[in-house]
Design a binder for these strands. Sequence first.
RNA 1: GCGCCCAUAGCUCAGCUGGAUAGAGCAACGGAUUUCUAAUCCGUAGGUCGGGGGUUCGAAUCCCUCUGGGCGUACCA
Length: 658
Amino acid sequence: MNALSELRSRFEKVLSELTSDPAPFVGMIKPTQDATFGDFQANCAMPLAKQRGTNPRSLAAEIVSKLAVSDLCHPPEVAGPGFINIRLKEDWLTERINAVVADPRLGVELAAKPKRVVIDYSAPNVAKPMHVGHLRSTVLGNALYRVFKFCGHQVVGDNHIGDWGTQFGMILFGYKNLLDAAAFQSNAVGELARLYRLVSQLSTYHDSKAELPIAETRRSQLETELKAAEATKAPNDKQAEKALKKLRTDVAEILDQIKTLNKQIETVESSQVLKALADAHPQIAELARLETAKLHARDEENTRLWNQFVPQCLAAIQGIYDRLDIQFDMTHGESYYNPLLAIVVEEMQKNGLAVESDKAICVFIPGNAAPFLIRKSDGAFTYATTDLATIRYRVKELNADTMIYVVDTRQSEHFRLLFETARLWGYGDRQFVHVNFGTILGKDNKPYKTRSGDTVGLESLLDAAVAKARQIVNENDDRKKDDAGNPTPELDDATRAVVAETVGIGAIKYADLRHNRESDYVYDEDKMLATTGDTATYMQYAYARVCGIFRKGSINRETLRQGAGQIRFTHPSERALSLQLLRFSEALDGVLSEFRPNILTDYLFATANSFSTFYQECSVLKEPDEATRTSRLLLCDLTARVIAVGLDLLGIKTCEQM
RNA sequence: GCGCCCAUAGCUCAGCUGGAUAGAGCAACGGAUUUCUAAUCCGUAGGUCGGGGGUUCGAAUCCCUCUGGGCGUACCA
């Protein structure tokens, strides 16, 4: 048990005498923000005194007097308006840290009540190559997957790929009408991706052509309105001021839209080849939709092509997963649930949850303006239907009690409606969580795109980061010198390549995980691969430095751990590092209770920092006193294990040597 | 129009179930190197937590309001 939960359980005994619901007050015991107040502080006396109408300081004193904690900390002190400050005893700390040395789980207990969790993450579309938009769901979801698993929960990682939608119809249409057979022969997936882009581009072109005049009409309308409003506006009329502002924004927006439309038209019309194709296929969007419908209706040819394409696309995606070290327990795409959809809709209509409206079948949830649409007016099902069928499958077949969706925050409304519908449908006893996250932005603070406006492919992103990492690895290794100042590079070419891959991929993942998931963040390669600061590299480097100690001292870490040596404190940095290492499980608890891996990145950064300070202050191999040397070696070993396991839980790898 | 989210140091961000002088990293400035890997460490400076009001012993955190931004808004997922 970690120090925090130990303290909390001791406090709970006392607090339960003072209140019928001690839980929120127990939660007010936290690590101190400022080390001068000790290691932990309890803030519960003030609010509890308010509740009981007594004096907070004397209540704090009363709590302290009843508290049985003399085995683990110094007598708690009451400070300020009623804070209780706690400093752990060295004896207790050394006992705990030595226990953790012998613990392969590093002091993290398995969950007492394991949950049956399904985590739905990554979910790319097979029709198009993975791009920057898939990064967060993949990285965040996999980190949560790993932490849940490590903490003893039964986890199913499910990749709910898009293999059944409109996009696939575009591929089918493209394959039948626009195929470059030679290209398909040499690189099938690449050609399918090109076809998707092409069909998508051509149908956008026709849409834009149709929309442009409408937008122009709207523009002149708005501009007229704006002029009139400007002319008639009385000074100091706040209402009119506001309306005017709104009009100006509207005009700016419509101009922007017209610009986009013109650009899309221009792109096609500036190319003779594209223009000819566009003219040859005026109904392309509709025909592509028809292909989708035929697929759904089990058309023989489309089914055959689907069976041929999907495995190839999946194999291509798998290449990226391998490189990112991402695993799933199952990959059930949308197609998997297709047979269940009609039943779901029928059932929901029968029990009155869903009704027909404008020829579509909808679930109306009170308090929500938009209905939850489970069948379109043309008879096709939507992703809402699929998601409902998926919930039923996960409950019935996988026995899930918790279902986690790692999906962009822009889909919040969908999940609110989905979860509410699921509750009405009879799954109110299950926990549903939308682990939402923000957008990855470019340096212009707009969604990250290439200069020409295309989405950025994930593969090229990885390649760029790894190439940059390779430069850094080269520079660093070439800089190494012996005492006489002669260069002594340590890494051969193959090793440098491995280190670069580890550092480059780690940098991307860490940059994603360290931010509060709900915030948007700016993708900045220079920053994530900076050789200084809060980056994966910093922790990977700390780990490599520890490994260097063992390598140089020819020390076997297993033997060391099983020896009779003990960790003891001879320097403040040893105590600080030990306390930090003992907080590992607190960090993991935090990740799971809030679904926030950034709590773990914070912890690991603080740990590596703590280690770096210790490393600076305390020599290990050169330490003459053998007991102290062994103590420090044990501390090094434990630090390395915590950092390596912690990074592994984030899906980030380490190198013995950098 | 309706709804959701955001605004914290020069920059990028933590902190948000209310708690002690608001924290990191980068950048700036000053120090540490006969190195167990300086891809490091130590220190200094930098903030009316967007503005205003309210609740409270106490507010970056909760409520109201204003301003500025982002996103979503029934048949794409």
